Amino acid sequence: MDEATVRRHAEHVLREAGVADDRFKEGGEQMLAALARFEGLWPHLQAAWQRMHRTEDEEARRWISDFGYAFIHLLTLRTTPAQRIPYQQAAVAAARALSDSQAEGAHLGNLGNAYRNLGRLEEAIHFYQQALAISREISDRRNEGNWLGNLGNAYAALGWVEKAIGYHEQALAISREIGDRRGEGSDLGNLGIAYKNLGRVEEAIGYHEQALAISREIGDRRGEGSDLGNLGIAYAALGRVEEAIGYHEQALAISREIGDRRGEGNHLVNLGRLYAEIGEPKKGLPLLKASLAIKRETGDRPGEGEALNYLGFAHHRLGNLEE
């Protein structure tokens, strides 16, 4: 194909991926069709990225920058964190060359997400802080709230829970101010996780129930699965194991339905751990093994360590001390 045809094709597949991402976010029955459409587009997107990345004119830079966020939800589902880093690094460079501050901030924040998912929390915080500064500089309230929430998640993972709550409360205030229901649900869920980690489990459940109601209201199946899983963790902390298992099973079904492998791995490890803890390690073992395989497949290094830890616990409960 000549260069003009190649570029038209690149623009077409990028635009179609953006449409698929929008339909995926809308939830409902469109989600599976959007996933299937994206699976067909993905090889073409990868080939186009290789071609455009080798070119340094303004049109190619714009394409590379748009690639970094035009279909970020589906890109996150389809790739590992390590695979996303080169795409986001290239997108940051392209946005800077174009003097596009809004896009630069979005790509920096997405780099932060990738590093956080790899467990490299200090690096994630560095990128989130840069993204937050840009969002405030250009008065982008939606992304300001987004990066505040992600900073909260990173600090929570470091064990700085009260600092995390401060960030999540700021994020929640912004989401409500601008009417961002998806963001509001995410912020409520993050607050629930933080309060559970402080041992204030009943308060955590209240936040998770609010988040679940919003996810169902807007048809956010991925968010719904996350909220159900968080409720399962909270009920397990209260010793209400049967309810916890019910929530995790619902969450697992949703993750499998929408092809969310990272979520599937999380729900499997939570179920497997619960079975091991209540004296049914034979039920837990295959779930934990399946979780470990998914953690490795998706490049989730912190999650891999968690799955290995609980696998060891399950083998111990079975008396398999050599395992």
Rank of each mutant, 00 (worst) to 15 (best):
L318Y: 10
L98R: 03
H168V: 03
T79E: 06
R116P: 01
E26K: 13
L191Q: 08
E217H: 12
D57L: 11
G105K: 02
Y235P: 09
Y310L: 00
D300Y: 14
T5S: 12
S135G: 12
A133N: 11
A133T: 14
S101P: 00
L121E: 01
H12L: 15
L45M: 08
A34K: 07
Q83V: 01
Q130H: 12
T76H: 13
G319L: 03
H53Q: 15
M1R: 10
G68Q: 13
E297S: 12
E104T: 15
R62L: 09
A290M: 11
L198Q: 13
A36G: 01
R7V: 02
S175F: 11
L188H: 03
V13Q: 01
W49D: 12
R176T: 08
I174A: 09
E257Q: 15
R182L: 09
G18Q: 12
A34P: 05
D21N: 15
G219C: 07
L151D: 04
D22P: 00
G263I: 05
R216M: 04
E217K: 14
P43A: 11
G312W: 02
A4W: 00
G18S: 12
R240F: 04
T5K: 10
A194W: 06
L321M: 05
E26H: 10
R61L: 14
Y275A: 04
G272E: 00
D57N: 14
A173H: 02
E203L: 07
E304W: 01
F71Y: 14
A70Y: 09
G159R: 06
I193A: 07
S99Y: 02
D260S: 06
S139D: 08
L271R: 01
H168A: 03
G225Y: 02
A164W: 04
R200G: 04
A97S: 08
K25C: 07
A314G: 02
N320G: 00
E11H: 10
M31Q: 14
R8N: 11
A307K: 00
Q250N: 07
A234H: 03
L228K: 08
Y195S: 04
G185R: 06
I174L: 09
Y235S: 08
L321Q: 05
K25F: 02
R78H: 15
A276W: 02
E122W: 07
A236C: 03
N113I: 10
I278L: 13
D57I: 12
A133F: 08
Q102D: 08
V201I: 15
H126V: 09
A194C: 06
N150D: 11
H208T: 05
A194T: 10
V13K: 02
I64K: 05
E304T: 06
R54C: 09
L158K: 13
P43F: 11
E26G: 13
R8C: 05
A106M: 12
G223R: 06
Y167T: 00
R23P: 05
